[in-house]
Structures are given as structure tokens and as C-alpha cells.
């Protein structure tokens, strides 16, 4: 079988025509970015683009991919997400000065929830905490989001059982 590019994998994992989350494609994207030398920087660029989609379902799927990769991929990916270069792309989506006024609330809430969970789960990524504090100072985060009951960072997202 031909190896697929990260780009074609993210397109499949976030396809707006998907009826439900396509876990096989999400996992395949995470696995592949770990294998490639330039996987993490390329993956974060692709994810940022999808997260900024005006289509709520496409953005939601991209956020699930991001969340899953943060849980399953290693430090190389964490370090890439922990750069302002990527964090700024998330900030743009929630900030009314950028795309925030036309972003669905569900997408904004999910981004703030993810950022907050990473400040707890990855305290060594100091830029994530700095970005989150800035959003608080700007009044974009009013109170810390309530995280799901399972562990805020380490537990994988709930996924349906196959079959």
C-alpha cells in the first residue's frame, strides 16, 4: 500500500461529510506524524488550518484530532503545540479581534477547555499557560472551564465501542 501523506490523512479525519468521528483516520494521523521527521510542525500547520474552518463540524473534528494527538503523541508534538506560532492560531479563533465573532461557541469552548487542560497536564509548556493567562486578562476566559470528570489530560477521549 502507498503511504499516505499527513495532508490526505487530516482531510479524511476532518471530512465534513463524516457522519461520526473517524477514529481510524484520527489514529492514523497521530501515528504518521510521529514517524515523519517534520511531522509535528507540518501536523500543527494542517490542524490550525482545519480548526479555523467556518464549518463547525470540520473544526470540531480537527479539535478532536488535536486532543487525541496531545494524548498519544510524544514530546516533539507537545513542543510544537507549545509554541506561540501554533497557540496564536488557536487564540485567533477565540478572540473577537480576529475570528472569534464568527466562530461557533462550541468550538470556542472546546479550545478554551483544551488550553486549560494542557496548562494542568503539561505545566512544562510555559507558553501554553502564558497564552491562557493572556486570554483571561483579555476577558475571553471568564472562569476556568469545567473539565470532564475523567483525568483532565491523560485519559483518552471517550470513544464508542466497535461492534
Amino acid at each position: 500500500m502507498e503511504p499516505e501523506s499527513l495532508e490526505s490523512r487530516i482531510n479524511r479525519a476532518t471530512n465534513p461529510l463524516n457522519k461520526e468521528l473517524d477514529w481510524d483516520s484520527i489514529d492514523a494521523f497521530c501515528e504518521q506524524l510521529n514517524k515523519e521527521l517534520e511531522g509535528p510542525p507540518l501536523a500543527t500547520r494542517l490542524l490550525a488550518h482545519k480548526i479555523q474552518s467556518p464549518q463547525e463540524w470540520e473544526a470540531t473534528q480537527a479539535l478532536t484530532v488535536l486532543e487525541t494527538c496531545m494524548k498519544n503523541c510524544g514530546k516533539r508534538f507537545h513542543d510544537e503545540v507549545g509554541k506561540f506560532r501554533f497557540l496564536n492560531e488557536l487564540i485567533k479563533v477565540v478572540s473577537p479581534k480576529y475570528l472569534g465573532t464568527r466562530t461557533p461557541d462550541k468550538v470556542k469552548d472546546k479550545i478554551l477547555e483544551l488550553l486549560y487542560s494542557w496548562t494542568l497536564g503539561l505545566p512544562q509548556e510555559v507558553k501554553i499557560a502564558e497564552a491562557y493567562q493572556m486570554l483571561k486578562k483579555q476577558g475571553i476566559v471568564k472562569i476556568d472551564p469545567k473539565l470532564p470528570d475523567d483525568s483532565p489530560f491523560l485519559a483518552p477521549p471517550t470513544r464508542p465501542k466497535n461492534g
Binding site: K83, R85, N88, I91, K92, S95, K97, A131, M134
Partner: peptide, 15 residues
């Protein structure tokens, strides 16, 4: 050196 200059170029979005 590359990493250092990347670090210098990595700024939080102006708000």
C-alpha cells in the same frame, strides 16, 4: 543557534 533564533521569533499574538 537555529533553535535560539526560532525562540526569539516566537511571540504571543498582539491583542
Amino acid at each position: 543557534l537555529g533553535e535560539e533564533s526560532e525562540e526569539r521569533d516566537d511571540h504571543l499574538l498582539p491583542m
